[in-house]
Design a protein around this nucleic acid. Sequence first.
DNA 1: GCAGAGCGGAACGATCCGTTCCACTGCTAA
DNA 2: TTAGCAGTGGAACGGATCGTTCCGCTCTGC
Lengths: 203, 203
Amino acid sequence: MTTAGRTRQAARNNEVILAAAREVFLADKRAPISAVAERAGVGISALYRRYASKEDMLRTLCHDGLQRFIAEAEQAMAIPGDWAAFEQFVRGVVDADVHSLTVHLAGTFPPDEQLTADATRANILAEALFDRARQDMRPGAVPADLTMLLEMCAAARVPDPERTRELRGRYLTMLLDGLRRGGELPGPAPTVEELNWRWISTP
Amino acid sequence: MTTAGRTRQAARNNEVILAAAREVFLADKRAPISAVAERAGVGISALYRRYASKEDMLRTLCHDGLQRFIAEAEQAMAIPGDWAAFEQFVRGVVDADVHSLTVHLAGTFPPDEQLTADATRANILAEALFDRARQDMRPGAVPADLTMLLEMCAAARVPDPERTRELRGRYLTMLLDGLRRGGELPGPAPTVEELNWRWISTP
DNA sequence: GCAGAGCGGAACGATCCGTTCCACTGCTAA
DNA sequence: TTAGCAGTGGAACGGATCGTTCCGCTCTGC
């Protein structure tokens, strides 16, 4: 359990490095790769032994984020209440800061085939959860709004990550209440093109 | 009115450059100064003739943003209805994207004495408007929440500025409805230190 | 007609960052 | 026990970016 041989230490580094990368790139998606090494307490070599390039690292992070998104959605699907399922799903996604790990990182490298496939599946699941809860929402709300709501929640941010989670819970409560009650929403809802413009990036 | 002498053209450039700077830095606060010149259709010299440095330019933009914020607040103060005054104020601020011009730019250069004085005045006005409308809000809401709400609205963004305004109106409606109705808000409200951490920056 | 304000944009120097490379360490396997 | 190498730290490199300066040109205002 303690520090064992070189191989075990290396295996532990796998997790340490991934966690450090997640923390660093969550705080600043344009962070240099040396910041990840510093945060992990390792040299740069330890990073390049595991990932072919920075882009490779970001892709892994993005992939993990999408998996987490999908997992949260599938888990919420099993909940009986329609609105309860939707709320648990959204709160789980916001709590894990999945949005910063996916959409925010997506613009920094050309999309992957696997990535787009996962993104499609994630969208289908999210839409299903949204549609289930639609009867409890104000008129005019559409699934595309969910993306923007997640984006807005991700913008609430203070230096301390734990406190950030707490504050996001506070404002997510306001947003969800505003999603349920009220009259017709003003202005046309966002289109798919307007939501996916990040992904285009530089090919 | 048309292109007159050199001096008139130069005077016109004053506005053109300022407008270009606002557009460019609103889209990306880390944008290079050459992007401003390109957008304005002038050379880099025309910029440096007017502003001593990039920091000087950002400071001017930030100052103008704060002035606009204060103007919106004072204007809204005259409205009789408490909630109506507050709503008009917030919508005006979001519509002008004042938040991106002030808080977002504030972190990129050391604060100015004039700037902090204006910021204090802006805070007092905003707090007054908030307190007037407090009776119409859900329990637990505090003025500090307003900063976060503006931050979240500023995060709603698509490539087209006009469409961005439209979408922000949509989600501001949701946020304001969520600010009025509902039970006690969860989690402690943000503190002053948590809200002003951007301003510290590198001295 | 001419002095110089105003300007365009190339050039410069500083900084930053991704990636490579090499010397070194100490476990592992025989 | 020991030879060998997987794993590592971090300096060094090369490319890119960007703020700022500078020089030569234009064209106006007097």
